[in-house]
Design a protein around this nucleic acid. Structure first.
Lengths: 352, 352
DNA sequence: TTGTAAGCGTTATCAC
DNA sequence: GTGATAACGCTTACAA
């Protein structure tokens, strides 16, 4: 029955001002950091705020100052396992910047367009969009005039006509090839998945040129293009490694974790040692990679960096528009390579 | 260069009132549905709103009416593939109820506690919490007094002392057993994962009692408890099905998709037909289940229903508290069984 | 540096 | 049922 228990649910700035014996303007200035001095007044205000368990009313703050401290994220509704990591990374970055995260999912680009407009109405500080597949250019038009910064995250082409943060697939596979070559592999198989023509072709090209650059080679039938299933990895591996009379590659690069695990099961059946006889790298990562035996070396998108960069672009966009106004701003494009997470399916790096 | 291009970015209720030649109070009433008549005035107001591309300023609305139209969701930061589906389901349900979704991720229950307090400060209409593993009871205490409804979603125990929506594991496995028995299986293997003692034990018990009830049986070494990896499914299946001199089960129930796929690869190696000789069901679903060959019958949590129920509980909580006030409200617990998604690894249902 | 006071756009209250 | 008007809690000129 102490007074602490019956704490008033929502104290307002007026209560704090009264308790600290200053004006509400001073309270606002101290708590928002617009008043830098750390004297007795500042201390009294902060003390009063703590005592009353005060926190600014975000609705009032948003109404008056026209800034919501909200970052919005539009996702495709298709439950992609990567989405969970993306949401977590952006949530973290937003929290670090003192902002909250509004999320919406839609299954069509038209729905996504509506969603983005709703975000703009909410006066979000910035909007991050993972475009739905085959999102038409229609998405871009109606949003061009809005002054809320919009960032496209991922996607194989710049569907929205805005700043774009994506994955550098060419650099990623070059890193994968480098990883196994540095660990002693001279011959490499590549189990590609047949993602959209341009992206898949580009990655394949980068694989070939990485081989040349690093003096490694691949027989033509070591490069297969199919789905990303476990069975496919198993079948391709059985075919390529099952014939004892032929040369076998010293490493496999797989487009998916499932394919890599299928390959590992097949190699285990054939009594071919991983990683000493054959090394395996997956271009994607997920929880199964860490739990397999041996654990699977895999690449992952640097989500925290990509999220931080998104927020940085959003923050800068505000400055840019106030400067350039009606002049069309340059669209920025930042592409990150995936990072290698070294695990048990590749060897320790050779000491030169 | 039409006037449409230069459309004023944010028209306010005053502009709409002027254009419709009514008072702002009437505009508010018409657009918020508090005025039911559909006469000329209502039409004029709606027309004017469309013409000006007007949408209410949510900050002002939230400030004045003390209701934010925001649902908040707190997730563990660990990137669980299920999270993507959960976010999508809740986003859909929230959109259907005219609300937006605020999301925060945290890796500790302490962080989650802070997050929830921030959501309460944002004046969220309701908060949905997926508790972090081993979240202590500390999470519950400080939040008990808040009148913002809080719902726990998933989790194996009611960590928060609030309404709770979860999965009925016993009913789920009973449905799985029924599914294969109805399709002709009399003997069933179970590849369990060793999730937390209570939940795992409970599911195992339900498996046994389902067998009894449906007159099916399982040899004791057909029930294995291990991790959920593909390799484990492969190894267990090779062991149980590889000895031609022994009886083999007519169905396998697997705790994970990966394990089920490992089993399917093994059966394929052993030239045992799926689904005609052996049927397979996974207790979880993911994208790999649909793409395997044959595709994998799997169970999934009814996320749309669970999300809708969450919002229903939140909506009702408002009514309940205004009635009961200081009286401790009864905590509600709703448990949904997973649903079977029938695919190619089980047969067509036998016609009785 | 501080306090005073004017709004931000909406909904609630009150007369009519 | 409608319209004038007062609030909601905060930020920000502007005056002291």
């Amino acid at each position: 029955m102490t007074s602490a228990r019956g704490k008033r649910p929502n104290a307002s700035i007026t209560n704090v001002a009264a308790l600290a014996d200053v004006s509400i303007a001073t309270v606002s200035r101290v708590l928002s950091g617009r008043r830098t001095k750390d004297d007795d007044i500042a201390r009294r205000v902060r003390q009063a705020a703590i005592e009353l368990d005060y926190a600014v009313n975000s609705a009032a703050s948003a109404l008056r100052s026209d800034t919501s401290n909200i970052i919005a994220l539009s996702l495709p509704a298709t439950p992609n396992p990567l989405h969970a990591g993306i949401v977590a990374a952006i949530s973290d970055a937003a929290s670090a910047a003192g902002r909250q995260l509004l999320v919406g999912t839609d299954s069509t680009s038209a729905g996504q367009h509506q969603r983005i407009k709703a975000f703009i109405r909410r006066n979000a500080d910035g909007i991050i969009v993972l475009p739905c597949p085959r999102s038409g250019t229609s998405t871009a038009r109606g949003l061009a005039t809005a002054d809320t910064p919009i960032i496209q995250l991922f996607g194989s082409t710049n569907l929205l006509r805005h700043d774009w943060i994506s994955i550098d697939n060419g650099a990623s596979i070059e890193l994968a090839v480098t990883h196994v070559v540095e660990r002693g592999a001279h011959s490499i198989a590549y189990f590609s998945d047949a993602v959209g023509s341009s992206e898949g072709a580009q990655t394949l090209l980068a694989f070939q040129s990485s081989l040349n650059m690093l003096h490694a080679h691949a027989d033509s039938d070591w490069i297969t293009i199919a789905d990303g299933t476990t069975q496919r990895g198993f079948a391709d591996t059985m075919r390529i490694f099952g014939d004892a009379s032929r040369e076998i590659p010293e490493a496999i690069i797989c487009a998916s974790v499932d394919t890599a695990i299928g390959a590992m099961i097949a190699l285990n059946q054939l009594a071919i040692d991983v990683p000493n006889r054959v090394q395996i790298v997956s271009l994607r990562d997920d929880t199964a990679a860490a739990t397999s035996v041996p654990s699977l070396t895999a690449m992952r998108a640097p989500l925290p960096q990509m999220a931080a960069e998104s927020l940085r672009l959003i923050a800068n966009a505000g400055a840019a528009t106030s400067d350039a106004m009606t002049v069309a701003r340059l669209r920025r494009h930042v592409a990150f390579p995936r990072r290698v997470v070294a695990r048990g399916s590749t060897r320790h790096a050779a000491v030169a």
